[in-house]
Simulated assay, not measured.
Amino acid sequence: MEALYRVLVPDFETQIVGASDEDIERIEGLVGRPLPRFYRWFLMRMGRSMGPFGYPTIDFTAPAVLAGYSERLVHPDSRFLMIGHESDEMMPLHVFYDFDYPARDDARVTKSHPLGGGLHHQFDTLREMFAWGNLLAFHVEALTQRCVGLFYDSDDDVLTRLNPVMHRMGLASPVPSGSHCGLFLGEGASMVTRASPGKEPNIHTFRVGAESPARVRKILGMIGSETTLQVEIREWFPPLSS
């Protein structure tokens, strides 16, 4: 993660602030179990300020988490831990760990309203959520031409088909991920994909960016011709002229 952060924002370490040991231990005490290794790293490195990697309406800092519990917005639970406070009053879905689904020194990330109403699964791990969001914001969306759409495979998970051809095109995975999250970064091009945790990973939404429409078309064309994936383009940004 730190290597990816340095690519996206070379001086990020001067802009982040870690949480205190006391705050980390207090958060761990809320669930009565050891925190996932990745989450403990995150709190130690940027648990008081995420610097440039902060989310517009979600506060992942340790003080925000502890305030949510002290103000009884949420209550301690051995399975769920609120790790992000959503300030958007129109969609107040806070971010939670679901410890029933551990993965790769981390755990599933879901969203839920504190009064109930069901779970909205986001990513298999917090690591993937941060990597996906940061790569999208700092690289994909910064490129001249972008495209969003769907990859579909009727027989296998999408990333089994996608990974080899992306790596042949020079777009490597900067952070290891599972079958529900694709991360690809190269010179002048990048792509992120995702599928809902808990569902079969044979349908992924994708967002791809490059320095020209021709490069985006080439990437999608090679995926379509060298794999069995069905490629459905939903929208171009900016719109392509006819």
Rank of each mutant, 00 (worst) to 15 (best):
V208F: 01
C181Y: 05
P164E: 14
F53K: 10
A214E: 08
R37E: 09
G209Y: 04
G133D: 13
F12W: 15
H204V: 01
F151I: 07
L185W: 07
L136R: 05
Y39R: 13
R146E: 12
Q122L: 13
W41Y: 10
S87A: 13
P10S: 07
A214T: 05
E71D: 08
T144M: 12
R207V: 12
I233Y: 10
M91F: 15
E235V: 04
R146N: 15
P102A: 09
V231I: 07
E226M: 01
R161H: 09
T57N: 10
H121G: 00
T14C: 06
D23I: 04
G117C: 09
M90P: 00
Y152H: 13
V74R: 15
K199Q: 13
V109R: 03
I223N: 04
K199Y: 09
A19W: 04
L73Y: 06
M46H: 08
A103P: 00
V31M: 13
E25G: 07
R37V: 09
P36H: 07
S190D: 01
G221P: 15
T61H: 13
E86N: 15
V148C: 04
A64P: 10
G224Q: 05
D88R: 12
G188L: 09
A19D: 11
E28F: 04
A137Y: 07
W41A: 03
F184P: 02
M44C: 09
I16Q: 05
S212H: 06
E28I: 09
P92G: 02
P52C: 05
E22V: 11
A195H: 00
I58E: 11
K111D: 06
P52E: 04
G221S: 01
S154R: 11
P238V: 08
D59F: 12
L93W: 08
L150V: 07
G29T: 11
P52D: 03
G186D: 05
I27T: 06
I58G: 00
L43W: 03
F130T: 02
V208Q: 01
D157S: 05
A189Q: 11
I203S: 02
L4E: 02
K199H: 12
S242F: 11
Q230T: 12
F60T: 05
I83M: 08
I24T: 13
G118T: 14
F184I: 03
P239V: 06
R79Q: 15
H121I: 00
P63K: 14
S241T: 10
R215C: 00
L185T: 07
F99Y: 09
R37C: 01
R72E: 14
V165L: 04
Q15F: 09
P102G: 12
Q122D: 10
P10D: 09
E86I: 06
L135N: 05
R215D: 05
W41K: 05
F12P: 01
D100T: 13
P174M: 03
D124P: 00
F96I: 06
V65D: 07
D77C: 03
A189M: 12
A103S: 07
V192N: 09
